[in-house]
C-alpha cells in the first residue's frame, strides 16, 4: 500500500525529516511513536503532500505509483485520507457542505453523521467553537465520508475525554476494517504520543521517531511498554 523510501524533507530550508523509510501493507496498521518535535506530524504531512513540506530526496510510493511530486488533492482523490490534529476553522463553510464535497460514491454523509451522533453539527461552520472531542469527531466523519484506503491519523486521542475516546476508537476500528479478518483492505498510519489508542485499535507494526528519523521498529505493544517504563530518553541510548 505505502512505501516511504529514504525520505528527507525540509520546511522553509530547515530539515525536519532525515532518511526515513517505512512500509505498510494492505490491511496493516502502523503506529508511529515519538516525543513532541520528533518529526511524527512532519512525516504524515509529507505523505499527504501538504504544501510547504519539501521533499529533498527519497520517494513515496503508494499503490505502486511514485506520488512524491503529486499535489495533496490528487493523493486524496486516490484514496489517502488524513485526520489533522489541529484542523483550521473555516467560517461560513458548513460541515454538511464539506461532506458533500469530499464524499466517495456510495457513502451517505447523513447516515454516517447519525452513526457518530453528530447530526447537530452538520449546519455548523467547520470546527468553529468545537471542543477537542468534537473536532476529532468532525475529522472522523469527514474521513468516513471520504472512505480512504490509507488513513493517516495525527494523535486521534489528544484532547478527547474518556467518553468520546470510546466513540472515536470504535470509529477508527471501523475505518480500518478491524472487524474484518481476511479481506481487510484499509491501511493506517497512526501517530500516538500517549499510546491510548492501542486500547482500541490493534496495530501490526510500530516505530519510534527520534530526532527526525526512525530509531527503531518492532511490535507496537513492546515499543509502548518500553516507552512507558523507561521514557523516550531511553530510546536515545538504545543500540537499535
Amino acid at each position: 500500500m505505502l512505501e516511504v523510501q529514504n525520505l528527507t524533507v525540509s520546511v522553509e530550508g530547515k530539515r525536519i525529516l532525515e532518511n526515513v523509510s517505512l512500509s505498510i501493507d494492505k490491511g496493516e496498521t502502523y503506529m508511529l511513536f515519538g516525543e513532541n518535535g520528533s518529526g511524527k506530524t512532519s512525516l504524515i504531512m509529507s505523505i499527504m503532500g501538504i504544501g510547504n513540506y519539501q521533499v529533498e530526496s527519497g520517494k513515496i510510493i503508494y499503490k505502486g505509483e511514485d506520488i512524491t511530486e503529486w499535489p495533496s488533492y490528487e493523493r486524496a482523490k486516490h484514496g489517502i485520507g488524513i485526520m489533522f490534529q489541529r484542523p483550521p476553522t473555516i467560517r461560513g463553510l458548513k460541515l454538511k457542505q464539506m461532506l458533500e464535497m469530499v464524499k466517495r460514491d456510495g457513502k451517505d454523509p447523513l447516515e454516517l453523521a447519525e452513526e457518530l451522533n453528530f447530526t447537530d453539527f452538520l449546519d455548523r461552520d467547520i470546527n468553529l467553537g468545537f471542543s477537542g472531542g468534537e473536532i476529532k469527531r468532525a475529522e472522523i466523519l469527514q474521513l468516513m465520508t471520504q472512505d480512504p484506503d490509507l488513513v493517516l491519523l495525527d494523535e486521534p486521542e489528544s484532547g478527547v475525554d474518556i467518553v468520546n475516546m470510546g466513540l472515536i476508537g470504535n470509529s477508527i476500528r471501523e475505518l480500518l476494517q478491524k472487524d474484518l479478518h481476511r479481506k481487510r483492505e484499509k491501511s493506517g498510519l497512526i501517530i500516538t504520543h500517549s499510546g491510548y489508542i492501542l486500547d482500541y485499535v490493534e496495530a501490526d507494526k510500530g516505530c519510534v521517531l527520534v530526532n527526525n528519523t526512525i530509531w527503531c521498529t518492532g511490535n507496537p505493544h513492546e515499543i509502548m511498554d518500553g516507552i512507558r517504563s523507561h521514557g523516550y530518553e531511553e530510546c536515545l541510548t538504545c543500540q537499535r
Binding site: 499527504m48 503532500g49 501538504i50 504544501g51 499535489p71 495533496s72 488533492y73 486524496a76 482523490k77 485520507g81 488524513i82 489533522f84 484542523p87 483550521p88 473555516i90 467560517r91 461560513g92 463553510l93 457542505q97 464539506m98 464535497m101 469530499v102 461552520d125 469527514q142 471520504q146
Partner: peptide, 26 residues
C-alpha cells in the same frame, strides 16, 4: 492552512479557495 486543509480532502487549489471565499461571504 485553510486552503491546505481542503486540498488534503481532495479539492483542487482553486476549488478550495472558492469554497473558502463562499464561506466567508455566507
Amino acid at each position: 492552512d485553510e486552503v491546505e486543509y481542503l486540498m488534503a480532502r481532495g479539492l483542487s487549489e482553486n476549488e478550495a479557495i472558492s469554497a473558502i471565499v463562499r464561506g466567508f461571504m455566507n
